[in-house]
Design a protein around this nucleic acid. Structure first.
Lengths: 228, 228
DNA sequence: TACGCAAATATGTCTGCACATAATCCTGCC
DNA sequence: GGCAGGATTATGTGCAGACATATTTGCGTA
């Protein structure tokens, strides 16, 4: 009857979609299902665990497995390096460093990085282009301590790429918003101040040290797409 | 030594972060690791599979398991019903239906829904408020066929909530962008046209039928946050 | 009635084993 | 040297059984 746990997952999902098991209903136990499908309990468990991970099912010991009442839509967003995003669309990518200075960051940045006042950080601004057109204007604050003696050439390699290669597997958070172009943004893109721009702000850190805090302003009209 | 596959996952991750196994390096086989950890191969497999799912490892049969060279950042975004998003912050939620008519959608909507020209859809506009302030202005096109004889009262229950309850587990895509407030948006929020707004556009369908296509305009200053 | 403890139960995890599958590696032939 | 095809090998999946753990349920008692 079945070739594999994916078949079982598909069948369970089908029954849910067909309302055979309605929202909130408790579905049969792993044991019962394994008898029905003629396979081991572990195999059913694998299928149900996967559906629970995507939010379709909710499982609790002893209480059993039930169809989620308000299925939370979960979407996984893959955040590529900007170079890859551009080249993945078959366009030519270019990068230019605009500024690289040590200075004290403004208060909001300090708060987000949980740093005391008076600390100086490396402040980088740069421009990513696709097909010669400005694509993303980047404004980054970097903790110089993470360089650890190395002196990467941020004019040649973007800080983002250096970080993925040298400080990978970090924790962080990310926020999306819309904002009117500031003076810097307007100059970078050659547009009027106030033009709506899509903004991404990221903060990353390891267990003990803050690494970087970056604001990315995307070209007017940019859309970030993902699949549910 | 080990209490469970999560311990093993943590230890493997630690070694990767400590550069014991650098980016691109092939790590020992499941067999070797299971001997080292003193557990069954399946247990190691579970840990490595999980790390592969989060993008830290790349696995291929026969080739073995290697540390991802360019670890793709994956973030999982949970998309809540707007009511839950507001109430989850301890704020009072209110909903008001502004319009509900049958009409022919504009071309971009038809294209996204892959419908032929001339089809009429149900066009709903409504406003979600938090603490009495406009929070989201919603502009939705709904395929009337999915109602299937039911006549939900969209003045009392938002179309979104009706859909999660009655047409759950659908496929779809979602896009984020920034746009200047149009006339409708400006009227809904009481702001100047052109004010930058955060826009979410969603299209959902089942295997065979298109369900709905919605544009959500969030209040000025809204930030969508997620954790890496 | 209310409360607390014990039994029952469904999921969570682990073990050991087996076979399937996909790549790579290597050998031998041309 | 180059190529085809088989041997090798690491992961992918499955099975059966066992024990761990979290809850619920129900029973007995205050």
């Amino acid at each position: 009857m079945s070739h594999g746990w994916e078949t079982i997952r598909a069948d369970v999902l089908r029954r849910i979609q067909a309302r055979e098991w309605g929202p909130g209903a408790t579905i049969p136990s792993e044991e019962a299902l394994s008898r029905e499908f003629g396979c081991a309990r572990a195999t059913v468990g694998r299928a149900l665990r996967d559906l629970a991970a995507t939010g379709v099912l909710e499982r609790r010991r002893k209480a059993g497995t039930r169809v989620a009442l308000q299925p939370v839509r979960r979407a996984t967003l893959e955040i590529p390096v900007i170079r890859q995003e551009v080249e993945g669309r078959g366009q030519t990518y270019a990068y230019r460093l605009l500024a690289d200075v040590m200075e004290q960051p403004p208060l909001p940045v300090l708060l987000r990085l949980r740093l005391p006042a008076g600390v100086a950080l490396r402040h980088l601004t740069c421009l990513h282009s696709a097909v010669g057109q400005p694509f993303v204007y980047e404004d980054r604050w970097l903790n110089p301590a993470v360089l650890g003696g190395q002196r990467p050439d941020f004019a040649a390699q973007s800080a983002n790429e250096w970080l993925v290669a040298n400080m990978p597997y970090t924790a962080g958070d990310i926020a999306f918003s819309a904002a009117g172009a500031g003076a810097d943004d307007a100059a970078a893109f050659g547009i009027d101040p106030g033009t709506p721009l899509f903004i991404v702000e990221r903060t990353t850190w390891t267990a003990d040290t803050v690494i970087t805090c970056v604001r990315l302003a995307y070209m007017p009209g940019y859309r970030l797409r993902m699949t549910l």
